[in-house]
């Protein structure tokens, strides 16, 4: 199992992602944003950071980098792609995932650990019982997910909402549990097919107990297991 971790100018979580994957006993290589050869990778990670300075809008420039045309082809063929934080913003800008990520409702950059609830979804990256609560860090300024009512209905109906922000017991607060104001408490969504997954939280930071938890392990091991079963 070999992951390709894409580095854009301004990415800053690629080392964490590669470390996390290797820590779990799998292979990971860095892929430069100018590269166009993704042969040999079983899955791709778009890491967090501030690609191209996040100018114009987060991810708006990164989506036009040479590697992204290949990432789109990879995704169209059904290849698994995960976008974490800035990676999620890039996937949304590239229209691989619906909706957009706005500035956090409270205008503050949020750096904390949140509770996330796994939902019943089509996502190939997660294989958790619906309602499982995970503790995963978030670290962003633009994580306020938004889409129009029609899209939201589709996301709900197709099982495309993968993770929601929640309270420690897995419930959702009446006024919303998303610290960034995200619509419907959405923390992560996937495409209809389930192979492309974007989320604001950082699972790569919680795979090793020394960094505060292991709830992120599942995000990398589940896809490896699935691919092993398929092949």
């Amino acid at each position: 199992m070999r992951f390709g971790v894409v580095i854009f100018p301004g990415s800053n979580c690629e080392q964490d992602a590669v470390h996390a994957i290797r820590h779990l006993g799998m292979q990971a290589d860095f892929v430069w944003h100018g590269d166009t050869d993704l042969a040999g990778y079983d899955a791709l990670v778009l890491p967090g950071g501030f690609s191209y300075g996040d100018y114009i809008r987060c991810g708006a420039v990164a989506r036009f980098s040479p590697v992204m045309a290949e990432v789109m082809r990879f995704a169209e063929r059904g290849g698994p792609v995960i976008g974490i934080c800035n990676g999620f913003q890039i996937l949304a800008e590239a229209h691989l995932l619906p909706g957009a990520l706005l500035r956090n409702r409270g205008l503050k950059f949020i750096c904390t650990t949140v509770d996330l609830r796994a939902e019943e979804s089509a996502c190939e990256w997660l294989d958790l019982a619906p309602g499982t609560v995970l503790r995963v860090p978030i670290n962003h300024n633009e994580g306020n997910y938004i889409c129009d009512a029609e899209t939201l209905e589709r996301l709900q109906g197709n099982g495309q909402i993968v993770l929601r922000y929640c309270e420690p017991d897995g419930s959702r607060a009446a006024g919303g549990s998303a610290p960034n104001g995200a619509l419907d408490d959405i923390a992560g969504i996937c495409n209809e097919r389930g192979n492309v997954f974007g989320l604001m939280p950082h699972p790569e930071r919680v795979v090793d107990p020394v960094s505060g938890g292991t709830d992120g392990q599942h995000f990398f091991t589940a896809i490896a297991q699935r691919l092993a079963e398929v092949s």
């Binding site: 114009i56 809008r57 420039v61 949304a92 800008e93 619906p98 909706g99 957009a100 938004i146 889409c147």
Partner: peptide
């Protein structure tokens, strides 16, 4: 394409 995001 770039300067605005028609989604929002």
């Amino acid at each position: 394409k770039l300067l605005a995001n028609p989604v929002i």
